[in-house]
Amino acid sequence: QIARRTYDLLKKEPNIKVYMTRNEDVFIPLNVRVQKARTLQADLFISIHADAFIDRTVKGSTVFALSTKGASSSAASYLAQTQNEADQIGGVSRSGDKYLDNTILDLVQKTTLTNGVILGSSILNRMKGVNKLHKPSIEKAGFAVLKAPDIPSVLVETGFISNADEEKKLNTAAFQIQISTAIVNGIKDYLKKRKK
């Protein structure tokens, strides 16, 4: 519901096109979701989830961006997969020179990582007015869903469904709208601050 509400809010924004990698409760492999975003030449990728943990007292919202370690392994994997294919790196055609291509990918990925952190921080800053934060600043991890080498990507954990209080909030339209609005406002803040 939060993803759908976010989608509906973004559709109302001028100059923004929004796509869902899935529109129903079916499993789509993480790499397929990322590939879909790359095929659409997305400018950013946001994955929205509800968190869970064995300790039912744990609560709060979290935003993750790709860690440098995850980025490096992603870049190596990406280059290996596309070694013999005509492809683009961040909108620039591959040269065929692996050293030049590595340099281009490195530059693109540095900008992507920087923008991922700006996007995540912008969303987190908006979410702190809606829900308690699980961590006060953006987290970094090597989640597969964040590993597009040329698309700033974040994972938004809206709250802990394993926490009784947050589960109740997550099921209310009011909270869903607040979280969706925070995500959209964070995206709009990011668009003003991003590195080009």
Results as ranks from 00 to 15, higher is better:
4 R>A: 04
6 T>V: 02
7 Y>N: 04
16 I>D: 13
18 V>A: 13
22 R>F: 12
22 R>I: 10
23 N>M: 06
29 P>N: 12
30 L>G: 05
33 R>H: 13
34 V>L: 03
38 R>V: 04
40 L>K: 14
41 Q>E: 11
42 A>N: 07
44 L>E: 01
49 H>M: 11
55 D>V: 08
61 S>K: 08
65 A>F: 06
66 L>H: 04
68 T>S: 09
68 T>G: 05
77 S>C: 05
88 Q>V: 11
92 V>H: 14
97 D>F: 14
97 D>T: 14
98 K>S: 06
103 T>D: 01
104 I>T: 03
105 L>G: 00
109 Q>D: 05
109 Q>R: 12
110 K>W: 11
112 T>M: 11
112 T>P: 03
113 L>C: 01
114 T>Y: 10
118 I>R: 02
119 L>M: 07
121 S>E: 12
125 N>H: 12
126 R>N: 15
131 N>K: 15
134 H>A: 06
142 G>A: 09
149 P>A: 01
150 D>P: 04
150 D>W: 09
153 S>L: 06
154 V>K: 07
156 V>D: 00
156 V>G: 01
157 E>S: 14
161 I>L: 09
162 S>L: 14
164 A>V: 02
165 D>N: 14
172 T>I: 04
172 T>R: 07
173 A>E: 08
178 Q>N: 15
183 I>G: 09
184 V>N: 03
185 N>Q: 10
186 G>E: 01
188 K>R: 12
191 L>P: 02
195 K>E: 01
